[in-house]
Design a protein around this nucleic acid. Structure first.
Lengths: 348, 348
DNA sequence: TGCCCAATTGTAACTGTTCCGACGCTCCCG
DNA sequence: CGGGAGCGTCGGAACAGTTACAATTGGGCA
């Protein structure tokens, strides 16, 4: 449709200037650049180098320039994405929006400049990047988070129901005082998990006690802190639901150190993205999310869309599953309590 | 220098056919395609779309179409690579050689077609892909493996000396029967670790016993199998060196299950790529490799090379370190032995 | 032999980029 | 006050590569 020559004609300038403006090259005045970018946006300009269509999709982490902390969840997600794009013979490029995107550029222009036909967005914060990309009509799928906006394609996990099941599993074993150890950041996933916990208690007619809900960062250290805080109470819980894999591992580790026997003294339900639950002692009962499937399905749908094999919008919520292992059992006759975060005592 | 038109003139064909041949498009006879690719190779043809230089480097896993098993090591490596390419404002693209490379294409032609200026090669098998790429003079760095060939740039870890230290650490504690549990595949890393083990024993005047060296795959299950095999012997070892993180975790887990107290009954030295040694009980003494640094330095050097900030070759061998934690202690008075892979008995 | 069809190739138009020169503006100094 | 020097900005033209469509070729078959 539109080309650099069309834009040049419309603005009465040369193609060279248009090209320079479009590629963030120096030697173009701010006003000219802005005019070019606006006209390009308005006329729906899409660069087609020669006319070659590239089969590349981008993976964007809007929040941070570089995703330094590549944990098990990100790794599994990426493995899925790589497999998913590979099906339709697409390649994957990491893009760094913060580093490379020009202020006056639209997201579409930015991705086009990078030669990307679509983009997978992994939002880690509250930035509205996914929404903005969707607003522009650029092919996109948001991974592992949902959105109210109808134009945002996304895939994520639904952990509310399974969290409810997990707590019901504890209730069924006879537990009545059940702690919740949850991530401090309230993304939709963690809100789900807290709601599931509340659903289960409400269903059993048990009042939620605020002092049995503790929050810390999602790390082994956070898990230790939450464990200690819960067990330091006059009436400690006999079971705890940790909503994050790393905090579960930290807590289990601390129990071994302190001589707290899991599940004899304390039942623990954790959360798992991959196969960490098999790597601990004891192997822990967990709400399991299939991170790889999230990446896989998102990448598959996006590449199908780009191949015109599908149309419309994509909004998938994958179920999680409850895997019962060795860390949950009947409540102890005497609950475990910690004095001064160290000495283990038993209370009736 | 060379262009599609030059190639077309030389072969007496049209530029359209040259372009089609160069891009793996259908509708070109095999003979013509081969002639075009050969002429392109001979004349040193490099595509320059428009004339735009792209700042993209590739990450290639030659062995498998898709790297499905994205463990902690790969994840840390990738985190380093992403950070490294970001310094010089490069992007990273995953490329799939097996899937996309045409038989008659050279590696350079293939990477050029993908718009890559350099490539990081993560060899997982014995394929000579890295050597072939280097032979063609395409900018490359091999990650986490070495090479005898002077034209292959590489970065890897040296674990022989630290493995020797680790075994000497056990010898210093008084251990005399020390087992080696090692990966079945003999890449240079694992050869290093076995040699370090042998060096230490030789230094202490202890004869290496073949039955104390066992091999299995690098997985938790492999670790369990190797543990059981070593402890099933009439004269079992009092300490074991596991040369892989996953097998270490599997073995430690099995010890907890069987009631073997580490380090009281059995000392274990493991291997760590990341921070797994802090996530087990007990935290284990380990030979530690900085996977992230491997990716980081490789990416940094390659992007500096592409920016003409450096020349020559790159061959870096990073040291590993011995981190002493809780899994090693004096040998027990009575060594642990397993009967029928299950019952724990003690032998004098 | 003549015809049809598919495979292969060529022509020409098109897209986007960059080299090099031109233009105009400011500033400094004779 | 006037004339370069220098700088920022832009245009013309040449060039790179791709593809739609036309043209050619050659084989199979009536």
């Amino acid at each position: 449709m539109s080309s650099v020559r069309a834009i040049a004609d419309e603005l009465g300038i040369s193609v060279a200037t248009v090209s320079r403006a479009l590629n963030n090259h120096p030697g173009v005045s701010d006003g000219t650049r802005r005019r070019v970018l606006q006209t390009a946006d308005k006329s729906g300009y899409r660069p087609s180098v020669g006319r070659k269509p590239t089969n590349v999709v981008g993976l964007a982490y809007p929040g941070e320039p570089v995703k330094a902390d590549f944990g098990a969840f990100e790794a599994a997600l990426l493995a899925g994405v790589l497999e998913g794009v590979s099906d339709r013979r697409f390649d994957l490029t990491f893009v760094n929006i913060q580093r490379d995107k020009h202020r006056d550029e639209t997201f579409g222009q930015f991705f086009d400049r990078k030669g990307l036909r679509g983009v997978l967005v992994r939002s880690l914060d509250d930035s509205k990047v996914a929404e903005q990309i969707a607003d522009e009509g650029f092919p996109m799928v948001q991974i592992a988070d949902r959105s109210d906006r109808p134009d945002v394609n996304y895939i994520d996990s639904e952990s509310r129901k399974t969290s409810q099941q997990a707590v019901e599993h504890l209730l069924g074993l006879g537990h009545r005082r059940i702690g919740l150890a949850i991530h401090r950041v309230s993304d939709s996933d963690h809100v789900d998990r807290e709601n599931g916990y509340r659903d289960a208690l409400a269903g059993a007619g048990i009042q939620v006690q605020d002092n049995l809900i503790v929050r810390a960062e999602a790390s082994p250290e956070g898990g230790v802190m939450m464990l200690l805080k819960l067990l330091d109470q006059p009436e400690p819980p006999t079971a705890i639901y940790f909503t994050n894999p790393l905090s579960t591992v930290g807590a289990l580790h601390k129990c071994l150190q302190l001589g707290i026997r899991v599940p004899k003294d304390l039942s623990i339900v954790g959360f798992d993205d991959s196969d960490i639950r098999f790597r601990t002692f004891p192997q822990f009962t967990a709400v399991c999310q299939d991170a790889k499937a999230l990446g896989l399905e998102a990448a598959r749908w996006l590449t199908r869309l780009l191949n015109n094999e599908t149309t419309g919008s994509f909004r998938e919520t994958r179920p999680t599953t409850l895997a019962v292992h060795e860390s949950t059992a009947f409540p102890p006759v005497a609950a475990i309590r910690l004095e001064d975060n160290a000495r283990v005592v038993r209370v009736i």
